[in-house]
Design a protein around this nucleic acid. Structure first.
Lengths: 154, 154
DNA sequence: GGATATTGCTCAGTATGCTGACTATCAGTA
DNA sequence: TACTGATAGTCAGCATACTGAGCAATATCC
C-alpha cells in the first residue's frame, strides 16, 4: 500500500502546517499577534487601497465567506477599516490604518525570516525550484477550488 | 514590495487548498463522503491495527486534539472502532471495521485520481521533483510544528 | 511505597476554509 | 418601468488545526 507520505496531498498539508507554525512563531517572537492569513490580507489592502472584499478575496484566493471574519479581526485590532462604498451600496471599501501600516513595516523582518526557515532544509536552488513547481501546479489547478486567484481587471 | 504569491508560505496554503478541493471532488463524485484527513487516518488505522490515538496522530502528523474529532467522525460513520486498551487504561485502541475496509478499497481509485489531478500542470519528472523537495523541506521542519511526524518505535 | 513527573485523552476557545442559503443591491433587458 | 439575473456581503453549520487547561492513569525516582 502506498504510504500517505508519498501522496502530494498529504505533503501539501504537512508543508502548510509547518509554514503556519513557523510564521506564527517568528511573528509572535517579534511581539505581534497576526496570522499568515491576516498578514496577506493586510498587505494586499495596503497595496490596493479602497478595494472591496470580493476583489481582496480574489487577489489572495480566499473564499468570500472566509474573508468576512478575517477583516472583522483586522478591524477589531485597529489595523484596517471597512466602510460603505459610495459607488455600490452592496460593497465595502477597505483601507489600511496608520497602525496597520506601522505593524506591516515592523513585522516584515519576522515574515521574511519565517519564509527562510520554512525552506531551511533546501539549498537556494532547491528553494527556487520548489517555488517554481508549486507555482506551476497551482496555476494549473487554480479553477479547482471554490476560491480561485483572480487578477485585478484594469 | 514582495508579492504574496512569491512567498513559500502563501504557495503552501494555496497548494493545500487546491489539493483538498480536488480530493473532495473526486471522492464525492465516486459517491463517498470522506475528507483527506479522515482518509489518511483510516488508511493508517488499517495498516496499524490496534494502535492508540497518540501513535496514530504521530504517524500522520496530526495534533492530538485534532485526532479526537477525526476519530469521532470515523466511528460515527461506522468505519472505525475505538475501544479501551487492556494494557493502558488511558489509551484507546483503534480498529478499522469491515465497512471501513470496504470503503477504503472502493475509494482508492478516486484518491489516486485526485493525486494525479493536483499535479496535472506538471510533467512526471516535475511531479517527482516537487514531491522530493516537499519531502526534504518537511523533514527539515518536522519539529517546528506542534504535531510533528513520529515513527513507530519497534 | 509514596511523591513526582509524564502520558493519553478530552474539552473550551479561537481561526481558517468550506457549503449552502439568504438579503440587499445592481445591471441588463423586454 | 418591471422582470430577470448576477453580484457583494453575511450567516449558520461543519471540519480541520491550534493553545492551553484539566483529568485519569502510568512511570519514575527517592
Amino acid at each position: 500500500m502506498k504510504d500517505n507520505n508519498d501522496m502530494p496531498g498529504h505533503l501539501a498539508r504537512r508543508f502548510q502546517q509547518i509554514a503556519v507554525a513557523v510564521f506564527l512563531a517568528e511573528v509572535g517572537d517579534a511581539g505581534f499577534d497576526l496570522t499568515p492569513v491576516q498578514y496577506a490580507a493586510l498587505a494586499t489592502i495596503k497595496a490596493n487601497p479602497g478595494l472591496d472584499q470580493v476583489t481582496l478575496a480574489g487577489l489572495i484566493a480566499y473564499d468570500r465567506t472566509t474573508i468576512t471574519g478575517v477583516i472583522d479581526r483586522l478591524v477589531q485590532k485597529g489595523l484596517a477599516e471597512r466602510r460603505a462604498s459610495s459607488r455600490d451600496r452592496r460593497a465595502r471599501e477597505l483601507e489600511i490604518t496608520d497602525e496597520g501600516r506601522r505593524t506591516l513595516r515592523k513585522i516584515t523582518p519576522a515574515v521574511e525570516s519565517a519564509q527562510r526557515i520554512m525552506l531551511r532544509g533546501l539549498s537556494a536552488k532547491e528553494g527556487e525550484d520548489l517555488m517554481r513547481l508549486l507555482h506551476k501546479a497551482i496555476a494549473a489547478g487554480n479553477e479547482l477550488s471554490r476560491a480561485p486567484l483572480r487578477e485585478v481587471q484594469a
